[in-house]
Every structure is written in structure tokens, then in C-alpha cells.
Design a protein around this nucleic acid. Structure first.
Length: 215
DNA sequence: GACCAGGCACATC
DNA sequence: GATGTGCATGGT
């Protein structure tokens, strides 16, 4: 067992003991998870939940309705999440990809393997590495690790990776040192976000942090 | 009123 | 490859 795999397991253990299961991703259907992944880009989840709730209440939280909706109307509905023009365009490009290749069926999409689907998702304008990995891990249950701003900050501050590490370096760090288990990856990422929100802020709040002065 | 939030594309050096 | 900029609302 390498040093890193030991540290990562230890970190996961401490977070689990401190916070318990996070039950991610919030969302009733895989499709809703995909939309949330795009809408939450650089945005507070509360704003996303509001917009998704409004779409759901109006019966519009499905591929067909959103494909038919004019982009300008979609943008108007996305206002609370910020970047609404950009995100309307990004959702439209995701929907087009999805309808074109999988006939609106996430079940078919889930049949594709990770190695084929990840590059395909990354081809879509507006789907970067974090959004692609979120869709793969939480909507399609593929064992890929999601790296986000909190992951960079937490691993950097605790000296597990260099300050200049790239997205792929961090993703590889997790995937090469942990068993490729979907549930483990889901909980670990969610726990890192929880830690980031509660303690590992841009200005740290170390008082009470379960990883204080660790390792 | 500043700072922050579960990024990404694109231009430029 | 690294670095800078635009995109924008809502909570603290």
C-alpha cells in the first residue's frame, strides 16, 4: 500500500466519521442530475435547486420539453443560477448531443462504457472535466472521480499534491490509489465538498475541522 | 459593499 | 502549458 492510498483512506475515514453519508447527488432522476451538473457551475447549489424546482413544478424537467423550449425562454428561466445566457446555450448543446446519440434515453447512455463516454461528453461545448465526471459518476454510476475547487484547496493545503497540480493529476491521484467503487467515489467527493463548505474556505475556518493539523 | 459559490471557453503570451 | 477575462445571480 502506497503512502497516498493510506492517506486518502485515512482522510475518507475521518470525514465519514465527522459528517456521515452525504447521499449525493441531490436529484430524483439521472436527467435531473445532468441538468444540475451544468447549472451548478461556479454557482451556489441553492440557486440551482430553485430553478430545478420551478422547471419540475411546470412539468418541464424532461429532455423533450427542454429541446422544444426556445433558448431565450430557457435563459429567462435560468436567471437565478447566474450566467443564464451561457448556461442556456450549454444545456441546449447537451440536450442536442443526448437526443442525437441516445434518443433521449439515459438508460442507453448508461450502457456506453466510461472510456468511450467521457471523451464524448468533453466534446460538448460547456461540458468540462468536472461536469463530465459529475454526470458520469452521479447520473450514470461510472467509477470516475470528480475534482472540484474544494478538492484542489483541501489536497493542496494538506500537502497531498503540489499547489500547481492539474485536474487530471488530482483525478488520477484518487483513481490510482483507491478501488474503483462508485459509492466510494460518490461519498468521498460529497464529503470533500462538505468539508470545503464548512471549514476549508478561501479563508480557512480551522476551529473544529476534522482534518485540523492533519496529516 | 465586498466576497464567495460544487466551471468553462476563448484569447494571448 | 500557464495566465487572464467574460459570464451574473443570490447568500453571507
Amino acid at each position: 500500500m502506497t503512502r497516498l492510498s493510506k492517506l486518502l483512506r485515512e482522510m475518507y475515514q475521518k470525514l465519514w466519521e465527522a459528517f456521515g453519508p452525504q447521499g449525493w447527488w441531490p436529484g430524483e432522476t439521472p436527467f435531473e442530475v445532468c441538468l444540475g451538473a451544468v447549472l451548478t457551475q461556479n454557482t451556489n447549489w441553492n440557486n440551482v435547486a430553485r430553478v430545478l424546482g420551478e422547471l419540475k413544478a411546470d412539468g418541464l424537467l424532461n429532455p423533450r420539453a427542454l429541446l422544444l423550449m426556445p433558448e431565450a425562454e430557457l435563459a429567462r428561466r435560468l436567471k437565478p443560477v447566474g450566467y443564464f445566457n451561457v448556461k442556456a446555450r450549454r444545456l441546449k448543446s447537451f440536450l442536442a448531443f443526448f437526443a442525437g446519440r441516445f434518443q433521449e434515453s439515459l438508460d442507453l447512455m448508461a450502457l456506453s462504457d466510461l472510456e468511450a463516454l467521457r471523451p464524448a461528453l468533453l466534446e460538448i461545448k460547456g461540458i468540462g472535466p468536472e461536469t463530465a465526471d459529475s454526470i458520469l459518476l452521479y447520473a450514470l454510476h461510472k467509477p470516475t472521480f470528480v475534482v472540484d475547487a474544494y478538492t484542489f484547496r483541501i489536497l493542496g493545503r494538506h500537502g497531498l499534491v503540489g499547489e500547481t497540480a492539474s485536474y487530471e493529476e488530482l483525478r488520477r491521484t484518487f483513481m490510482e490509489h483507491l478501488a474503483p467503487e462508485v459509492e466510494l467515489y460518490q461519498e468521498f467527493h460529497a464529503l470533500l465538498v462538505r468539508l470545503g463548505k464548512d471549514f476549508c474556505r478561501p479563508t480557512p475556518r480551522c476551529d473544529g475541522c476534522p482534518l485540523h493539523k492533519w496529516p
